[in-house]
């Protein structure tokens, strides 16, 4: 049984996953499994992960998420983040999280655009 960690919304081949809040490593693990399942089984071509509800993340959790996004890209769904707050971005950068290859956008629309552009 995979715990519910995110709400999924499908929009014409794109998937918007809204993370429901702060999570422990187990939660991020669960998110990876359900996210990759969804991408594989629903033929998702672009992925947006909305972190608006996430206030804190440690660099390890972020690394986990970064790899998840990379895996989604390998499955054919380039991923873009949205809803990263200023304190979260500052904390991740200051704590030395590896942000390489991770792209964010200020709004869900922009993120969807960016992800779709990357997939075409």
């Amino acid at each position: 049984m995979i715990p519910v960690t995110a709400a999924f919304a499908h929009l014409e081949g794109a998937l918007v996953a809204t993370v429901l809040g702060d999570m422990d490593p187990e939660g991020w693990n669960g998110l990876r499994r359900s996210l990759l399942d969804e991408v594989q089984h629903r033929g998702v071509r672009a992925l947006v992960v909305d972190l608006s509800a996430v206030r804190v993340m440690d660099p390890d959790d972020f690394e986990h998420l970064r790899r998840t996004l990379k895996m989604a890209a390998v499955l054919g769904a380039p991923a873009v983040l949205t809803g990263v707050s200023a304190p979260l971005a500052a904390a991740l950068a200051s704590l030395g999280a590896n942000l390489e290859g991770v792209v964010g956008e200020a709004t869900v629309e922009r993120a969807l655009d960016a992800a779709r552009r990357a997939s075409s």
């Binding site: 983040l81 949205t82 990263v84 200023a86 979260l88 971005a89 500052a90 991740l92 950068a93 200051s94 030395g96 942000l99 991770v102 792209v103 964010g104 956008e105 200020a106 709004t107 922009r110 993120a111």
Partner: peptide, 12 residues
Amino acid sequence: LKVTHATRLMGC
């Protein structure tokens, strides 16, 4: 460098 990484997360 960290500032530039952080801004990218926010779509900038």
